[in-house]
Design a protein around this nucleic acid. Structure first.
Lengths: 235, 235
DNA sequence: GGAGAAATTAACCCGTTGGATAAATACTGT
DNA sequence: ACAGTATTTATCCAACGGGTTAATTTCTCC
């Protein structure tokens, strides 16, 4: 009680608290799934009292949905910055594949969250009003690229943009989200540097070859193939 | 105590019991994940006393691993019956894609189990000695097909069989295992008859086009494309 | 400088759940 | 027919986990 101002036991910081809670929840839900996640651990990780979760966000399910919405928001927002409109169509597709791959690599929690939500048959996502509206602009962006590619003669097929995007996402998503079991059953580490480089090359080659019909050139690692002898490579 | 043999309260059936337990466990784990699965529900579904799970298989984790091993065993065993060795290479690849797609459609629990195990970073699978040995014959089967395709000139690239199989599995797996969230965000039902037919055609077209370099012919729905005008189709 | 609101902590509640113990019942071989 | 073993049922319980209640502390504005 002297002149020294007594140290506070805690400070108020509602916005910061909410962010720390959501970040901690993202970690916890992606690491353990919905049922495996522990509310107490989220609180501890956020440096908060458990009560704070309910005060600032809601119960476990609401917390989970908030995390999920935030995750979709983040990837779609980054995708908008890709600026595919101004690229050569094949180059645009290549960039989309590379972005998707790298985004999944940089954000493994996103993959886990989607897996978890799909195990729940999208029960929570269906309640979200925000998420549905995020995606039509994205589909239109791809549709435009495909159309331009067809018109220019670069692409031989007018593929459905949704189908194409699902395939692009699939090639990266499955490889990464299932890398644990795949590494075990195939007995090789799919996440080391070399394997990852090869995977990216394989995916780009696969999709662009299918679209343009020029498989040998795209797949090749060394020089162009001779007439009947194929390029032997490990991608 | 008359002559009528008193009705038994229960009968012995160790083998049948074990099978019913594993089947019930498969249902439960695939429907709710590892943490979400309830031991009591498995017992009830198997028409068994909870104690039986521990008596015949083991604790929750051991039960889960047994289910997982059984699932891998089943798909690899069916794959062995594909007899790809005696088919034209492009036809062999088509058949592998179609089999994979249909197997995943017929066995949705398999997809869920893999997702669950990957969320656990293959913690359980790593302990399995059986599973690792199941896969090398399968990889060799694909390697042979690719080599034959390259030799015959059907395929323009000697793709790595593991990489190829992962891509084939990915295209089906992601579409089906994530159909719940994808259907929500893209606003269309990806599991209705038409959508499924289109997906299969898309996948076969994508992979065979990339391997053979003849995308337009493979993708086409109607007649062959003219020189620069692409085939417009929704696959 | 103090009253009222906002933010946070502390402590508790209570149904659930994986797992264990012990007793009962059905088989099997002799 | 009966002893011994394999299989199954009936209970129990301690820990856990989501959520709640109530008290405490900090901040804001007059």
């Amino acid at each position: 009680m002297a002149k020294a101002k007594r140290t506070l036991k805690w400070q108020r910081d509602p916005e910061g608290m909410r962010l720390r809670i959501l970040e901690a929840a993202k970690q916890e839900f992606s690491a353990h799934g919905l049922a495996g996640a522990r509310v107490d651990r989220i609180a501890a990780k956020a440096g908060a009292n458990k009560r704070m979760l309910y005060y600032h966000v809601g119960n476990k399910d609401e917390l989970y949905l908030a995390v999920l919405e935030g995750a979709y928001d983040k990837i779609r927002s980054e995708e908008r910055g890709l600026d595919l409109e101004h690229l050569d169509p094949p180059e645009a597709i290549r960039r989309l594949i590379e972005f998707t791959w790298n985004y999944f690599l940089r954000n493994p929690e996103f993959l886990s969250l989607l897996q978890t939500e799909n195990l729940a048959r999208a029960k929570h996502l269906k309640k979200s009003t925000k998420v549905k509206s995020m995606h039509s602009p994205f589909v239109e962006m791809i549709r435009t690229v495909v159309r331009r590619g067809v018109d220019s003669g670069d692409f031989q097929v007018a593929v459905d943009p949704v189908q194409l995007y699902i395939s692009i996402a699939a090639l990266s998503f499955f490889y990464l989200s299932n890398s644990a079991t795949l590494s075990v059953i195939f007995g090789r580490d799919l996440l080391d540097k070399k394997a990852k480089d090869e995977r990216l090359a394989h995916m780009v080659g696969l999709v662009l070859a299918a679209l343009t019909g020029r498989s040998a050139e795209l797949f090749k690692i060394g020089k162009a193939p001779t007439s009947r002898a194929a390029v032997v490579q490990t991608v």
